[in-house]
């Protein structure tokens, strides 16, 4: 009797340097220190792939930078050049384009996420201020950076309570003021909200997902109407 072979999807994204289940750690200088009663001399540590503690696919900050620096400038821009009235409206275009492509490739939605959608989201969340910080309440903690990712979300992104089954991000709160890390994390979280919205509405639109992200109940809320108007503007290039 022949044994059935277990089919395992072991394909990693072409932008990832390490095999599945591992993450890239950049080369670094290590100071002299003591570890488990041994004295470790000052030395240079080469870049290497490190096993993920969770066993799941996880992005760390080093690899977020490796991906964006290696691949994003080579991409043909899809995002609108419309600043929407914000001084820094075009400053993060390449990062938005890159991370939208990455997460669309990994998570394969039926309707791919549009980078212009994320651009409008950043406009409405933080007005393109990467240092934006707001208190979101006892439960959520603080919301930080371009996409106003909360402290609670950072925990979930790292695997807390298995909110995410795979494709985690390991971050610190202060990392969220870095536009590159914030956008990578914010889009991943938006995908989780899409998953929740799909369960609720049976194949939700990205707009319904935004409603969930912002905590609003109705499409008629002025903030959702504002989002729609800005998105229409960006698509029609009115300004």
């Amino acid at each position: 009797m022949s044994k059935k072979k277990k089919v395992v999807d072991d394909k990693k994204h072409p932008w990832r340097k390490c095999p599945l289940g591992q993450h890239w750690r950049s080369p670094s200088h290590v100071d002299a220190h003591t570890r488990k009663k041994f004295n470790v001399k000052e030395h240079y540590r080469k870049g290497t792939c490190v096993k993920n503690r969770s066993g799941r696919d996880t992005l760390y900050d080093d690899e977020i930078y490796l991906i964006s620096n290696s691949f994003f400038s080579k991409m043909k821009p899809k995002i609108s050049q419309n600043k929407l009235g914000y001084k820094k409206g075009n400053e993060y275009n390449q990062l938005i384009d890159g991370w939208v492509k990455y997460w669309n490739d990994i998570l394969k939605p039926k309707v791919p996420l549009d980078p212009d959608f994320v651009k409008v989201m950043i406009a409405t969340e933080s007005s393109f201020n990467p240092k934006a910080k707001a208190y979101a309440g006892k439960r959520a903690g603080h919301a930080r950076g371009l996409m106003q990712v909360t402290d609670q979300t950072v925990k979930y992104l790292s695997g807390h309570r298995k909110e995410l089954r795979n494709h985690l991000l390991h971050l610190e709160q202060d990392d969220l003021y870095d536009p590159n890390i914030n956008i990578a994390a914010g889009i991943r979280w938006l995908y989780r909200k899409k998953q929740i919205a799909d369960a609720r509405y049976k194949e939700a639109s990205w707009l319904e997902t935004i409603m969930l992200y912002k905590g609003y109940r109705s499409m008629n809320h002025p903030q959702i109407k504002k989002f729609i108007k800005l998105y229409e503007r960006i698509k029609s290039e009115e300004i």
């Binding site: 409405t124 969340e125 208190y135 979101a136 309440g137 006892k138 439960r139 959520a140 919301a143 106003q148 912002k214 905590g215 609003y216 809320h221 002025p222 903030q223």
Partner: peptide
């Protein structure tokens, strides 16, 4: 009309 960018926890509101 006036509103904020997001809805949040009751204590914050």
């Amino acid at each position: 009309s006036i509103s904020t960018r997001r809805a949040f926890d009751l204590d914050r509101c």
